[in-house]
């Protein structure tokens, strides 16, 4: 009976995957190309954004340093000059759309369409504009080195923890570098458990749960992500970049390294942004997250607490045990 159940469940998952995959074809029609990709080899980065002009210079800087060869960006109606900034970059291919972010599964359908067109057979990094990927020794081992290592082991995905950063004492003002504006993070209030549906580690905790979801912690945002995947025709992200189908891509192997996505969501001025996003109603779960932010009026530095640590580089994160190098010595 269990075998039968498993087979049936596999069928369910396959159907789900195919439905999401077909959906991305339909949603891909909403994209209008602005600039074309210059290169198709190397590691490709995919992002969907709206009004992120503040973060973009640091975002592009960081990922260029990590060895991303080509960016594929969907601009969902920016009005703050982000589109112009992106169009002027030689290594950014841009698409524009005015479609609904929510009905494109928070940008995932658009990016799935781009990955299907441009990413098959390549290592594809799918990140938001407020996520900066780091992993052990990333300065001397950029993404091509990591991907070559994963390839040699037959590994096809690279998991990362989404680490929320926030302001606090000594944070720089809006004119500073992004990571200096939000230099604090929670070191040790995370918890993980296996999610039997997709076989990934479901991680929750951190400052967002502590501050906004203390009463209903099961609603707190998931912090597990799989940002880097060797893309194959037919693969699809299920919920944001938290997990994928087929399920094997979510599995974390003991010998494989893991990374951290530095999440710079809470830049100074986040309250205004939260208000706007809550009004737009384009975010996950009826904007439950943004309504929670509004309900507990978010002052700058309000997330800082006794358990906060100041971010000091990847060595600190590795020593704390928030990421691991596995056997990638």
């Amino acid at each position: 009976m269990r075998r039968v159940d498993e087979c049936l469940y596999q069928l369910v998952l396959r159907t789900r995957r195919q439905r999401l995959f077909l959906r991305s074809w339909r949603k891909g029609l909403e994209l209008a190309p602005v600039t074309r990709p210059a290169r198709r080899e190397g590691v490709l980065a995919f992002a969907c954004l709206r009004n992120e002009a503040r973060r973009l210079p640091d975002f592009l800087d960081h990922y260029r340093r990590l060895g991303v060869a080509q960016f594929f960006v969907v601009d969902n109606g920016s009005t703050d000059g982000a589109a112009e900034l992106l169009a002027a970059q030689p290594d950014v291919a841009m698409w524009r759309t005015s479609g609904s972010y929510r009905r494109s599964r928070y940008g995932m359908d658009w990016l799935a369409a781009l990955k299907r067109r441009h990413g098959c057979g390549r290592w594809c990094l799918t990140v938001d504009a407020d996520e900066l990927l780091v992993y052990p020794d990333w300065e001397t081992r950029p993404l091509p080195a990591l991907c070559a290592w994963l390839d040699a082991r037959g590994l096809r995905s690279f998991p990362a923890l989404l680490l929320d950063l926030y302001g606090g004492p000594g944070a720089a003002g809006p004119e500073g570098r992004i990571l200096e504006q939000v230099p604090w993070f929670d070191a040790g209030n995370y918890r993980a458990q296996r999610d039997p549906r997709y076989g990934h580690d479901w991680i929750q905790g951190g400052p967002r749960e502590r501050a906004f979801f203390a009463g209903e912690p099961w609603q707190a945002p998931a912090l597990n992500k799989v940002p880097l995947v060797r893309w194959k025709f037919g693969q699809t992200y299920v919920s944001s970049t938290h997990h994928l189908l087929p399920r094997g891509l979510n599995q974390r192997r003991e010998e494989a390294p893991t990374g951290v996505l530095l999440h710079t969501k809470f830049l100074p001025g986040f309250a205004a942004r939260a208000e706007e996003e809550a009004a737009r109603q384009e975010h996950y779960g009826d904007c439950v997250e943004y309504r929670a932010y509004l309900a507990r009026a978010l002052r700058p530095g309000a997330l800082h607490g006794p358990g906060s640590l100041r971010f000091a580089g990847w060595r600190q994160l590795e020593a704390l045990g928030l990421m691991s190098r596995g056997v990638w010595i």
Partner: peptide, 11 residues
């Protein structure tokens, strides 16, 4: 290498 000890797992 310990696997991310800062993220304890259920069980």
């Amino acid at each position: 290498q310990p696997l991310t000890p800062a993220i304890p797992r259920r069980g």
